[in-house]
Measured scan of single mutants.
Amino acid sequence: MQIFVKTLTGKTITLEVEPSDTIENVKAKIQDKEGIPPDQQRSIFAGKQLEDGRTLSDYNIQKESTLHLVLR
C-alpha cells in the first residue's frame, strides 16, 4: 500500500509499505529516499509519536494515510 510522509519543509514523500511493516522499517525506507538517519526521525500520526517496534497496523495506518516527519 502507499502512504505519504510530509516533512516540515512541506515536501511529501510517497512510500510503498505493508500494514505489517514496523515503524523502524518505514524510517529505513525514508532514509533510502531522503538520506535522513532513522535516529533523527520522529514520525507523528494523528497527533501521536510512533514507536519503532510497533507496526503500521498497530496505529491503524491505512493506505494513503499521511505521516508527519519531524527531525530531532
Rank of each mutant, 00 (worst) to 15 (best):
G53K: 11
G47Y: 06
L8V: 11
P37M: 09
V17C: 05
S43N: 11
L67S: 01
T22P: 02
K27F: 11
E16K: 09
G47R: 03
E24M: 12
P38I: 15
N60I: 03
Q62C: 04
Q62H: 11
G10Y: 04
D52P: 08
E51L: 11
V70S: 06
K6Q: 08
Y59E: 02
I61H: 02
F45M: 05
T9R: 11
L67W: 01
I44L: 13
S20N: 12
I23K: 01
E64W: 14
E64D: 14
K48E: 12
E64M: 12
D39M: 09
E16I: 13
L15R: 00
L71R: 09
S57L: 11
E51G: 04
L50V: 04
Q49G: 06
K33G: 06
K63H: 15
R72H: 10
F45S: 04
P38Q: 13
S57R: 12
K27D: 01
M1P: 00
P38H: 12
M1C: 04
T12G: 02
K33I: 14
L71M: 11
V26E: 01
A46M: 14
Q31F: 15
L69N: 02
V17A: 04
G35V: 03
F45E: 02
I36Q: 06
V70N: 04
E51T: 05
P38D: 08
K48F: 12
G47H: 07
Q62I: 11
G10N: 05
I3K: 00
T55M: 09
K27I: 13
T9N: 12
L56M: 04
K11T: 08
L50H: 02
N25D: 11
I61G: 01
E18K: 13
N25E: 12
D32L: 13
E64N: 15
G35W: 05
A28Q: 13
L15C: 02
L71W: 11
D39W: 14
S57N: 09
A46E: 14
Q31L: 12
E34A: 13
T7K: 02
Q41C: 11
G53Q: 11
V5N: 01
L69H: 02
I61R: 01
Q41T: 13
T14K: 09
F4G: 01
A46K: 14
S65I: 04
N60E: 07
K29W: 05
D21Q: 04
G10F: 04
R72K: 12
E34C: 15
T12D: 02
G53Y: 12
Q49E: 15
D39P: 08
G10P: 00
D52M: 05
N25T: 14
S57Y: 09
L71C: 06
T55F: 04
R54Q: 08
L56Q: 02
H68I: 15
E64A: 10
G53F: 12
D39S: 13
F45R: 04
K29R: 10
T14A: 09
Q49A: 12
E34L: 15
I23R: 01
L71G: 08
G10L: 02
L8R: 11
Y59M: 03
D32V: 12
N25S: 14
K48Y: 10
